[in-house]
Write a protein that binds this DNA or RNA. Structure first.
Length: 278
DNA sequence: TACACAATAT
DNA sequence: TATATTGTGT
């Protein structure tokens, strides 16, 4: 068959040639996956070892746009790969598994997977995965107002080493309504004319500390750090060190960790699905 | 003192 | 609701 015969209009060249790293220990599955991805006109690199995948990713961070990985692999659990990728680089990862149990899927999502596909994968599901790459680019910027057409910086150029991440990524407008604009880091707060009874004699130059927004990216780093440490050794200080995020404090992490414990013990409901489809 | 953790406040 | 702050024990 003429596999490459689909010639969609190439007005948008982006999805064409998107660099995908496919990981699956089963050679048959891997071959199928690779073929399907190629049929979507992506540029595919395939490996049957998670270790190799990690090595490839670490050696050249600009080489891939997206990772799609099986969950069950002998050399390294897919979740582990997911954690490490989430911690060390900012790439969308799609998990792949025959196991469709809610618990397992939830685990993947909770660990930072941007999608979770069930085998056998259909090509229809792969045609759209480039959206995760786009989504990630938008995710570090406010997108409430469309007039910000400022292009996001390409993560490939200036991100060679763990750049200090900044906290201003608040992209979560979960409700379709107009969300009140979050105050960013600008210290322009001059008058707070409420007639409240605050007797704080705070210094005039002390601006209000901005609240940390636990964006998907930030949360991914958090989860990756927690899992790397192990849940029992994951204490705020160590998590903070591993995350290596500028201006994030131990208290911030502690607060988030508190919630995370609740989530893990399923005491509170998890808003992960909101993360998925904003 | 520094920290973790739970409770409470905003 | 999400995150910050406070309180308490180690």
């Amino acid at each position: 068959m003429l596999s490459g015969a689909l010639r969609m209009e190439e007005r948008d060249q982006f999805p064409v040639g998107m660099r995908v790293l496919a990981v699956d220990d089963d050679p048959v599955c891997l071959k199928v996956l690779e073929t399907l991805l190629r049929r979507c006109q992506y540029h595919v690199t395939a490996t049957n070892q998670a270790i190799t995948a990690l090595k490839l990713l670490r050696e050249n961070r600009d080489m891939f746009d997206l990772v799609i990985s099986d969950v069950h692999m002998p050399d390294m659990d897919g979740f582990k790969l997911l954690e490490l990728v989430g911690l060390e680089m900012d790439l969308p990862v799609i998990m792949l598994s025959v196991n469709g149990e809610t618990k397992t899927v939830m685990k993947g999502i909770a660990h930072g997977a941007c999608d979770y596909l069930l085998k056998p994968v259909r090509i229809e599901e792969l045609r759209n995965i480039w959206q995760h790459v786009v989504r990630r680019k938008f995710s570090s910027r406010e997108r409430s107002n469309l007039e910000f057409s400022k292009e996001c910086n390409k993560p490939s150029s200036a991100d060679t080493e763990h750049g200090p991440n900044q906290l201003t990524c608040g992209s979560s407008d979960q409700n379709g309504r107009i969300s009140k604009k979050r105050k960013e880091l600008h210290s322009e707060e001059v008058e707070e004319g409420d007639d409240n009874d605050f007797q704080e004699n705070d210094e005039p130059s002390a601006a209000k500390k901005p609240r940390v927004v636990w964006s998907v990216e930030l949360h991914r780093k958090f989860v990756a750090a927690v899992n790397q440490l192990g849940i029992d050794k994951a204490v705020p200080k160590r998590i903070l060190e591993l995350m290596n995020v500028e201006k994030l404090t131990r208290e911030n992490v502690a607060s988030h960790l508190q919630v995370w414990h609740l989530i893990l013990s399923q005491i509170i409901r998890v808003p992960f699905l909101l993360f998925m489809s904003s």
